[in-house]
Design a protein around this nucleic acid. Structure first.
Length: 896
DNA sequence: GCACGGACGTA
DNA sequence: CGTACGTCCGTGCC
């Protein structure tokens, strides 16, 4: 308490505009909306802030000050005051009024005073409170309030966002600025305030200003001795006396505004929970922020929370023989599972398992399991008849495998189910998923979700784990309904869920990598890299720029060497390989050749280095495959990405030779679909010509080219074939004549003619593509052969750019997505085939249209049959699915 | 330390 | 002004 502790008043004073504005920029505007197009990010952030500050500072009184639109007396002193500020973003509009509605419901008084700023209101109330011996706490990002800091006045400055605050008392101000708070306006007058468009003395910063203030006492003293001050700064001061004096008049706080004296007007505990909930409903705010509203703000005994906390079943923590009892009694039919512990790169430390149903809740400690409990749990987990649900079944399986436990009987994978229903949403953590489903109409992004329900923040250990399991159980029910609604039950049950198990085994197995091969390659590339770099520098007169910096390259190429500008990027001009090749054609400058060579070799080294970092102690790389990333339904791979290992260039391909058959295995096998996307186009378009092309057994592009150019297949030359191939594949991506021309480096007229010629023979393909886009526009989503949907709301956008982009996506998604469906089916078939045939050979990788397998000794012939059959008959199209198979000691040699 | 853009590897 | 991804680096921000 202060020295004048007679007064217990402790008033919180908030600068409404400053904090609302800050909240606006701290949270994404497009992530917070009331569902009707009104952004609410500033409202949410501001409300969070006031809740937090009231809870942590425990004031007895509170007031919020706002600016009024239009000018103040300061504009009459200086007509450029606050000029040049960025215009308020449109999404900010209306949010101040909403904040005021929240404050009304909270029973917090807010004030505006004609002709004055929020600062002046705060200054008046702070000064008055301090004079009466109370304490004032000011919350603002505006520096003008620094002058108010004193024994009874503390400033809370937001540091990051609106929830982290720095406490400024007189000592802190002195520490930061080197002067006492009451001298701050003097310092600001000298330095100027760019936010208010108040220029100060050029060449004088806070350090100099503080030095002068210390030397001459205050601004008056400085001006009185202005003639004595030496140097440039002194002269600058003498030249700008008027501006300084004006600044000082401007930044002086007004402390005598007419504001209500009655302390009741500022007291807490006047909030109306019913009104507040109505406002929060309007704003689509979630349950947690309601729960967090401090009771002191509300009228007696009320709570803001309208979302009743679910009564959790009693938490059981069985040990020993109790585990078997509890599993048999409460979880005989199934349960939702949540496991505590991390799993990465084959390393796991699962420590506890939570189980939940609608009526039961248990946490089993995995660290101190005795034999009886372990056996009971192992039996229960392995029982395929016991239905189990998890947020991520593959991860749960990995975690339990790390404890030596196998799982069967997975029935629902929340992440997969969610993805099938909403493939374009970002992958969701459990907290985010729970939030989205608990508040159906709540349109918040992960930032808010994390705050709302952060299940990762493990505060109460087993309770949190149990609550999470309970959430998984309830979400399981919800998502099963969602799957029905989106016609995705079969996709989940019969494709993705079983596939998750197959992929999990692939990840756990990993692929053997020969580090010596990579080390040797790296050494070769290192030498080459140095050689090329030296050569490149020699063409720059020995200037050793950073060849990896697009910025420095632009300076050299376009400024220093005066080369013609290339296509624009966001930050300048492109230096990508295509642009550099163009430049080389035009200028013949030898630097460009070296630069391109340097890029190539640097890229190769990066790839090699990245791979080496991921080699496990057992000499294997365990990538992670994701089922819930690519909106078309493809898998993705990361840590490391094994789906983009080079293959196009000779140099790049050598990296593939480092991927080898595992010890105890005979060789690697690769099996890939030939032209699967074109086959799908033939099937979906039902185009006779294209179907015939595949049935003829002739080389596809040669056959199509012979029709397009109207020559015999044997008369198709290389140029005709490659042009036709470009059109064929371009079709599946929505390629324009412009893009085709650019890619083939031909004129746009020629490209148009080429495409027209193509459609003369294969017009059915164009018709199909057009119709499929129109159908998607009508029903709102695209569909693959297995019924995997992708919503595309932008197909009806008024914005041409967005609409045309969505059209290309609509064109491509059924094709890419159906190919993804087919290879996923194939993976299940191959997995089944391996088991049925009793083979030890195993699938290691999937690269979109290719599988890589370890071939066990003596199994090659049988494996060929299993793989060819599994992939070839995965799905029946109107054209055959052709599978190419190759075998060799390593991935490169296994190519065919 | 973190976010972003540019560049480039794959299907 | 061609779809779908992941990773690296340099840069500029806090």
């Amino acid at each position: 308490m202060s020295a004048s502790g007679a007064n217990e008043q402790r008033i919180l004073l908030i600068d409404g505009h400053a904090m609302a504005f800050r909240a606006f920029f701290a949270l994404p505007a497009d992530g917070f909306s009331d569902g009707r197009g009104q952004a609410t990010n500033a409202v949410y952030g501001f409300t969070r802030m006031i809740i937090n500050v009231v809870a942590s500072e425990q004031p007895t009184h509170v007031a919020v000050a706002f600016d009024l639109p239009g000018g103040t007396f300061r504009d009459r002193i200086y007509d450029q005051y606050k000029a040049g500020r960025e215009v308020t973003p449109p999404e900010f509009h209306g949010q101040i009024a909403l904040i005021q509605q929240v404050l009304d419901a909270l029973g917090v008084s807010w004030f505006t005073v004609e002709d004055y700023e929020a600062d002046d209101i705060i200054a008046t109330l702070a000064t008055r409170t301090a004079a009466e011996g109370g304490q004032a706490l000011i919350v603002t990002s505006d520096r003008d309030s620094i002058q108010l800091v004193g024994e009874n006045v503390t400033l809370l400055q937001p540091i990051k966002g609106v929830t982290e605050m720095r406490r400024m008392d007189p000592a802190a101000v002195e520490e930061k600025y080197g002067i006492p708070p009451e001298r701050y306006p003097d310092l600001a007058a000298l330095v100027g305030e760019s936010a208010d468009n108040l220029p100060g003395v050029p060449g004088v910063g806070p350090k100099t200003a503080a030095k002068w203030i210390t030397a001459y006492g205050d601004l008056q003293g400085i001006l009185a001795h202005a003639e004595e001050i030496k140097g440039k700064a002194g002269q600058s001061l003498r030249d700008n006396v008027e501006a300084v004096e004006r600044n000082r008049r401007m930044n002086a706080a007004v402390t005598d505004l007419e504001l209500p004296q009655d302390p009741e007007r500022y007291s807490l505990g006047r909030g109306d929970a019913v009104a507040l909930n109505a406002v929060f409903d309007e704003l689509a705010f979630g349950p947690t922020i309601r729960k967090d509203v401090p009771a002191v703000l509300l009228a007696d005994g009320e709570s803001a929370s309208t979302v009743p906390e679910r009564e959790l079943p009693a938490l059981q923590q069985p040990t020993g023989e109790q585990v078997a009892e509890v599993l048999a009694r409460d979880f005989a039919a199934g349960a939702a599972l949540v496991i505590d512990g991390r799993w990465e790169l084959g390393q796991g430390d699962a420590s506890a398992l939570a189980l939940a149903t609608d009526d039961a809740l248990a946490v089993i400690d995995l660290v101190d399991l005795d034999d009886t409990a372990e056996r009971a749990l192992a039996t229960w987990l392995a029982d395929p008849a016991i239905a189990k649900t998890a947020h991520d079944t593959k991860l749960a399986t990995h975690q339990l495998r790390g404890r030596g436990l196998d799982v069967a009987g997975w029935s629902t994978d929340l992440a997969i189910a969610e993805f099938l229903c909403r493939p374009d949403q970002r992958p969701t953590d459990l907290a985010g998923l729970a939030m989205r489903h608990l508040q159906e109409d709540l349109q918040v992004t992960s930032a808010a979700v994390q705050q709302e329900l952060d299940l990762d923040q493990d505060e109460s250990g087993k309770d949190t784990l149990a609550r999470a399991a309970d959430a998984v159980a309830r979400l399981g029910t919800t998502l099963r309904e969602d799957l029905e609604q989106h016609a995705a039950v079969e996709l989940h049950d019969d494709l993705e869920l079983p596939l998750a198990r197959v992929i999990g085994v692939m990840e756990a197995t990993g692929i053997a990598v020969d580090d010596d091969v990579l080390a040797e390659l790296d050494a070769q590339h290192e030498a080459e890299q140095e050689r090329v770099a030296e050569s490149a520098f020699s063409h720059l007169g020995g200037d050793r720029i950073n060849l990896g910096s697009p910025k420095q390259l632009q300076e050299v190429l376009f400024d220093r060497l005066g080369m013609p500008r290339t296509r624009r990027t966001k930050t300048g001009f492109s230096t990508d390989a295509e642009s550099l090749a163009d430049l080389h054609e035009k200028t013949q400058h030898p630097f460009l050749t070296d630069l391109l060579a340097h890029r190539d070799v640097t890229k190769m080294r990066q790839i090699i280095d990245t791979l080496r970092r991921f080699i496990s102690p057992t000499g294997r790389i365990h990538t992670t495959f994701h089922q819930n990333i690519a909106a078309t339904g493809r898998l993705s791979s990361n840590n490391p990405n094994l789906q983009n290992i080079p293959t196009r260039t000779e140099e790049g391909r050598r990296i593939r030779s480092a991927f080898r058959a595992s010890d105890g295995f005979e060789s690697l096998m690769t099996a890939d679909y030939s032209q699967i996307e074109m086959r799908i186009m033939a099937h979906l378009s039902d185009n006779e010509g294209l179907i015939e092309a595949f049935r003829s057994g002739e080389d596809l592009h040669r056959y199509v080219a012979s029709k397009v150019f109207d020559v015999a297949p044997e008369d198709v030359d290389g140029a005709m074939r490659s042009k036709t191939k470009a059109v064929s594949y371009g079709l599946a991506y929505g390629l324009s004549a412009f893009g085709l021309a650019r890619q083939l480096r031909i004129s746009q007229a020629e490209a148009t003619a080429l495409r027209d010629g193509y459609f003369e023979r294969f017009g059915g393909v164009r018709d199909y593509l057009r119709e499929s886009v129109e159908k998607a526009r009508a029903i709102g989503y695209t569909e693959t052969i297995l019924g995997r949907r992708r919503p595309l709301p932008d197909l009806t956008s008024d914005n041409r750019q967005r609409r045309e982009n969505a059209e290309r996506v609509a064109l491509n998604s059924p094709i890419q997505g159906s190919a993804a469906d087919i290879i996923k089916l194939a993976m299940l078939r191959v997995d089944e085939g391996l088991r049925d045939a009793g083979l030890t050979s195993r699938v290691l990788l999937q690269v979109h249209d290719e599988l890589v397998l370890d071939v066990a000794p003596g199994e090659e012939e049988q494996l060929r049959e299993v793989v060819a059959a599994g992939m070839g008959s995965a799905y029946e199209l109107s054209v055959p699915l052709e599978v190419g198979i190759g075998v060799g000691p390593n991935w490169l040699a296994a190519a065919h």
